[in-house]
Amino acid sequence: MSSKHRVVVGLSGGVDSAVSAWLLKQQGHEVIGIFMKNWEDDDDSEYCSSRQDWLDAASVADVIGIDIEHVNFAAEYKDRVFAEFLREYQAGRTPNPDILCNAEIKFKAFLDHAMRLGAEKIATGHYARVRHNPATGLHELLKGLDPLKDQSYFLHRLSQAQLARTMFPVGELLKTEVRRIATEIGLPNAKKKDSTGICFIGERPFREFLNRYIQKAPGPIRDDRGREIGQHVGLSFYTLGQRQGLGIGGVKEVGAAKGGGEHAPWFVARKDVPGNTLWVVQGHDHPWLLSPELEAQDASWVAGEPPAPGVYAAKTRYRQADAACTLVTAGPSGFALTFEEPQWAVTPGQSAVLYDGEVCLGGGVIHGASATRQPVPSVPPVAMRRGRRRVVPSSNA
Score class of each variant (00 low, 15 high):
174 L>V: 08
347 T>K: 07
81 V>P: 04
325 C>I: 11
154 F>D: 00
256 A>F: 09
395 S>E: 11
47 Y>I: 07
92 G>E: 01
177 E>C: 02
247 G>F: 01
241 G>C: 09
296 A>N: 07
327 L>I: 04
236 S>C: 13
93 R>Y: 02
249 G>V: 03
176 T>V: 15
315 K>T: 11
392 V>T: 10
318 Y>L: 15
330 A>H: 10
31 V>L: 09
375 P>D: 03
269 A>K: 10
31 V>K: 12
351 S>N: 15
271 K>I: 09
280 V>E: 05
63 V>R: 13
271 K>W: 00
302 V>K: 02
335 F>Q: 11
4 K>Y: 14
66 I>T: 01
348 P>W: 03
290 L>N: 01
235 L>K: 06
239 T>M: 10
316 T>Y: 08
284 H>Q: 15
355 Y>M: 02
351 S>L: 07
334 G>N: 13
136 T>K: 09
290 L>K: 08
96 N>R: 11
212 R>L: 13
356 D>H: 13
387 G>L: 02
386 R>S: 11
34 I>G: 04
159 S>N: 02
322 D>I: 10
1 M>I: 13
264 A>S: 13
221 I>D: 09
171 G>I: 08
134 P>I: 00
53 D>A: 03
342 P>R: 03
62 D>R: 15
109 A>L: 02
327 L>Y: 12
141 L>I: 01
35 F>R: 03
274 P>V: 05
374 Q>V: 14
48 C>T: 10
49 S>G: 04
279 W>P: 03
282 Q>G: 15
79 D>E: 14
327 L>V: 05
361 L>E: 01
109 A>Q: 01
189 N>D: 03
90 Q>W: 08
290 L>D: 02
246 L>N: 05
38 N>D: 04
120 E>H: 13
259 G>F: 09
368 G>K: 12
273 V>P: 00
78 K>Q: 03
63 V>A: 06
272 D>K: 11
257 A>F: 06
239 T>G: 14
228 E>H: 03
80 R>S: 07
61 A>C: 05
178 V>M: 04
242 Q>E: 14
40 E>R: 00
277 T>W: 07
281 V>N: 06
263 H>R: 14
55 L>T: 13
354 L>P: 01
265 P>K: 10
124 T>N: 08
336 A>W: 05
314 A>T: 04
125 G>R: 08
226 G>P: 01
331 G>K: 09
308 A>K: 09
157 R>E: 10
